[in-house]
């Protein structure tokens, strides 16, 4: 399996025979008897820390997976739950009690069209996905309603990259502009800053970051700030 890491694969490629049972496979990989087969085209990635293999590609459609952090839009409001659009084939269910300190008499005040940052708690291909606005420790810890700000879409690959540890874009942006950001791995990014101009600069930097080498990002941001003031 090691000799395929960081290589380009297409559907049908036999990546390895299973020898080590402690390996985990994700996105775009399938097990067929004792073989691991690619089912998507892209680059095979490996996380040493989690012993986890997956295929990285530039797809736009989100498929829910447990523990994913997503940005959703409320589409329906019911007595004890909300229907949330998270970009998957079926809208997700958000219980009104899955917020910090929510009780029967103290429900969150959310309306149709509001944004929430949530965690996927149930993702099964035969069931409707369920999301919660609580961390594993049952605290809000950043999850919940997203007030004001601006929402834009990007590819799933870019949203994963923004969340990865070796992504310099957000740190570089933070040096020049103060801002708030919520990245959903469903390809939705929410940003908020003090002025509309800053929000536009942040959005453009993130969307163009795929086409700019890492060391030129700072110049790009400075140029944008200069040209607008």
């Amino acid at each position: 399996m090691e000799n395929f890491v960081d290589q380009f694969v297409v559907p049908g490629d036999v990546i390895a025979k299973i020898e080590d049972l402690k390996v985990r496979i994700g996105h775009g990989l399938l097990q067929s008897k004792d073989q691991i087969i690619a089912s998507k085209s892209g680059i095979l990635r490996y996380s040493k820390h989690h012993k986890f293999y997956w295929i990285e590609n530039e797809q736009k459609r989100y498929i829910p997976q447990v523990e994913d952090m997503v940005v959703g839009v409320i589409t329906e409001k019911h007595a004890e739950s909300f229907k949330v659009d998270i970009g998957s084939s079926c809208s997700a269910l958000l219980s009104a009690y899955s917020f910090e300190n929510a009780t029967k008499s103290n429900k969150p005040l959310l309306n149709v069209g509001n944004l929430v940052y949530a965690r996927v708690s149930v993702a099964n291909k035969d069931m409707e996905p369920e999301i919660v606005c609580l961390s594993v420790r049952n605290k809000s810890e950043g999850f919940g309603q997203l007030m004001a700000g601006y929402l834009f879409n990007c590819t799933l690959g870019l949203s994963h990259y923004l969340l990865s540890e070796d992504c310099p874009i957000l740190a570089t942006l933070g040096k020049h502009i103060p801002f708030e950001i919520a990245v959903g791995v469903n390809g939705r990014v929410w940003v908020n800053s003090k002025s509309n101009l800053h929000t536009i600069i942040i959005t453009n930097t993130i969307l163009n970051s795929q086409f700019i080498p890492d060391d030129q990002i700072e110049n790009f941001i400075l140029k944008l700030i200069e040209s607008r003031t």
């Binding site: 297409v10 559907p11 049908g12 775009g28 399938l30 087969i37 089912s39 998507k40 085209s41 892209g42 590609n57 530039e58 797809q59 736009k60 459609r61």
Partner: peptide, 10 residues
């Protein structure tokens, strides 16, 4: 392939 639909081959 561009849409990332799972396929068994090309």
């Amino acid at each position: 392939l561009d849409a990332g639909i799972e396929m068994q081959g090309l």
